[in-house]
Simulated assay, not measured.
Amino acid sequence: MRLPRLTGPVLSGLHCFLIAADQMSFTRAAEILCLTQSAVSHKIKNLEESLGVKLFIRQPRKLTLTDEGRRLKEVLALNFGDIANELRDLRTLELSGDLNVSVPPTFAQRWLLPRLSSFMDKYPALRFHLRTRNELVDFHTESFDCAIYFGNGKYTGLHVVKLMDESMVPVCSHEYAEQHGLYGNPAKLMSCMLLHDAAPWARAGKNDEWQYWAQQNGVVLPESGCTFDRSDLALQAAERGIGVAIGRASFIAEQLQSGRLVTPFTLSVPSPQNYYLVCRKEMATSPRVKAFIDWLGEVQ
């Protein structure tokens, strides 16, 4: 069997031969390939001429493979099967592994998890691994593909993509606002229990979020308060009438709509920190990371 050049007609003939050899019928092969029986016969005849060997013994109402035909069928069945699998999986080939993501706890619970099923539905072969933390990732020593930060966007040596802006406003239960005369009167905060997220962003102080809001609005705050290591815990405490928390717009829409939280005064301010996706620069072109970034942009 001489080795032909793998031109288009030869490759087409090889595929046609494999189907015919599998079906042992030119007629059934023609049906599968949406060709006429004579077109299948012609392709295989041309292939035989290109190879310089007979592949089929043609008998009335019967086909038999020659020894060369059997050898070629075995090789083609193995390799065409591999090619078919590769072509089927090509689009998601690099999306079938692991995606390790670090996310701030409250962002994960309040924003990401309610939307995450659509990402998993879109990339079912991708194994998504979520870890929550407020601290920054050390990409040199930790095996995260990317991370979402609530911060200022200045992360030296990393690829940074801004995801969305944030804003802040005090929130509490309706009953607490009524009891403390808060509606329309931010000065009454002096007599309230302030609920602090003690780690609103990396390296932040326990009072930084409240102090920033107060400075922007010229409001004096009491020095006492209750601190939590997660923003969602402060918000849950506010729902239960314990005090007043700083609510981020990305987290509180459902609670405001349901009435579990209220904004006693409309003094919302843009947050000094916003949401960014960060990764090592060489990971910015990773299909897994790029798919995650694109999805985050779609679901906002």
Rank of each mutant, 00 (worst) to 15 (best):
A84K: 15
A84C: 09
A84D: 13
N85P: 00
N85V: 13
N85C: 09
N85Q: 14
E86R: 15
E86I: 14
E86F: 15
E86L: 15
E86Q: 14
E86P: 00
L87G: 04
L87P: 02
L87R: 15
L87S: 07
L87W: 10
L87H: 11
R88V: 11
R88T: 11
R88S: 13
R88K: 15
R88P: 02
D89Q: 13
L90N: 09
L90I: 15
L90D: 06
R91V: 08
R91T: 09
R91Q: 12
R91I: 05
T92I: 05
T92C: 02
T92K: 03
T92P: 00
L93F: 13
L93T: 10
L93C: 09
E94Q: 11
E94F: 10
L95W: 02
L95S: 04
L95E: 07
S96Q: 13
S96W: 04
S96G: 15
S96M: 10
S96V: 06
S96D: 12
S96C: 10
G97S: 10
G97P: 06
G97R: 07
G97F: 05
D98V: 12
D98F: 10
D98A: 09
D98P: 00
D98E: 15
L99R: 02
L99I: 10
L99T: 03
N100C: 11
V101H: 00
V101Y: 00
V101P: 01
V101S: 00
V101C: 01
V101G: 03
S102V: 05
S102P: 04
S102R: 06
S102I: 01
S102T: 03
V103P: 01
V103F: 05
V103H: 04
V103Y: 02
V103K: 05
V103R: 03
P104L: 04
P104G: 05
P104T: 06
P104H: 03
P105H: 01
P105Q: 04
P105M: 01
P105I: 01
P105L: 01
T106R: 04
T106N: 04
F107T: 02
F107R: 00
F107N: 01
F107Q: 00
A108E: 05
A108T: 05
A108Y: 08
A108H: 06
Q109H: 06
Q109S: 11
Q109I: 10
R110Y: 02
R110S: 08
W111V: 06
W111C: 03
W111Y: 14
L112N: 08
L112S: 06
L112I: 12
L113M: 15
L113H: 08
P114A: 09
P114V: 07
P114L: 11
P114D: 10
P114H: 09
P114E: 07
R115I: 09
L116W: 07
L116T: 03
L116K: 08
L116E: 08
L116N: 04
L116M: 14
